[in-house]
């Protein structure tokens, strides 16, 4: 009872912070509410920071008018494709290298170099290779997601408890079965820890790719608006992207909760 009360209270406070931010934004930017104390011109604050009501109005028009769906669809598709491809590649390569120490030792400096490289720089190259369509954005997202998942899987496989491994061998597991029943589940807990990061980065890959050159997608909308100094539309695009990034993160959490039931969660003290 008390627990659910405090949870409700927490949600109310969180909403309160959001409302407070919007009110502050409104009061500080809409021309004529406050006397101009920083910018000489009363319209300047709105020019640089937008006006919340206009931003919300823009979002409303997008969804009510149906303009946004095509762009949102493209951006989400790019994100999902990058996310899945990057995760699967990271998982496969991670397991392979973790179980093949010689190959890992040979490739080690190259992997470190690729990881250290600022990979956003690859976007123009991908555009030359794959054109201005979705593929170049997916490729950029994959390079971002891959390394996060890869390093986590690599670590996860190497840190499999040697006792659990020896036990499975004593119980008669073949090499294949060890992979399927010991290495993979053990690595999966590390993968899930990294998925929250990688979902965000897949999004970054898609939007940055669109921003650098595209004909559709939310990043393209933002780029267009910026071209005509329409700051309200830029903010509207940012908010829509943020909302969808949160939604994707929430989906990852749901899947994680379903698949990771075996992991102890803090606060769970049922022991008999």
């Amino acid at each position: 009872m008390r627990n659910s009360d405090s949870k409700l209270g927490l949600r109310l406070w969180q909403l309160g912070v959001l409302a407070g931010l919007f009110v502050a934004w409104h009061v500080l930017t809409v021309p004529g509410i406050l006397p101009p104390f920083y910018f000489g011109d009363p319209n300047k604050a709105a020019f640089f920071f937008g006006e919340p009501l206009k931003v919300l109005g823009r979002i409303w028009n997008w969804f009510a008018g149906g303009d946004i769906y095509r762009h949102l669809w493209v951006t989400l598709m790019e994100t999902m494709l990058a996310f899945f491809t990057g995760t699967v590649l990271g998982l496969l390569v991670g397991i392979w290298l973790a179980l093949a120490p010689t190959a890992a030792a040979i490739l080690d400096p190259y992997i470190k170099a690729l990881n250290a490289m600022p990979r956003v720089i690859l976007a123009p190259i991908f555009m030359v290779w794959f054109g201005l369509g979705m593929l170049s954005k997916v490729a950029l997202g994959v390079t971002l997601v891959f390394f996060i998942v890869f390093f986590n899987v690599f670590q996860g496989v190497r840190e499999v408890s040697p006792v659990v491994l020896a036990n499975a061998r004593m119980l008669g597991a073949s090499k294949r079965q060890l992979l399927r029943h010991v290495y993979l589940p053990s690595a999966m807990s590390w993968v899930f820890a990294s998925l929250h990061n990688s979902v965000g980065l897949a999004f970054v890959g898609a939007v940055v790719g669109e921003y650098l050159g595209s004909s559709e997608g939310v990043g393209y909308l933002i780029l267009q608006a910026e071209g005509v100094f329409d700051i309200n539309t830029v903010f509207a695009g940012i908010m829509v992207l943020t909302a969808f990034a949160l939604a994707l993160d929430w989906v990852v959490t749901l899947v994680e909760k379903r698949l990771m039931v075996w992991q102890p969660r803090s606060g769970e003290t049922e022991r008999i």
């Binding site: 408890s161 036990n167 029943h181 075996w262």
Partner: peptide, 30 residues
């Protein structure tokens, strides 16, 4: 590996991602 032997380890050797029943039947599954 000694296929005729069963080994009871000192430290935790159960697979944490399998429940008790799945752990018990792991060898049969293999």
């Amino acid at each position: 590996i000694n296929g005729r032997a069963g080994y009871l380890f000192q430290s935790e050797a159960l697979m944490p991602w399998r429940n008790a029943l799945q752990n018990v039947i792991a060898g049969l599954e293999f």
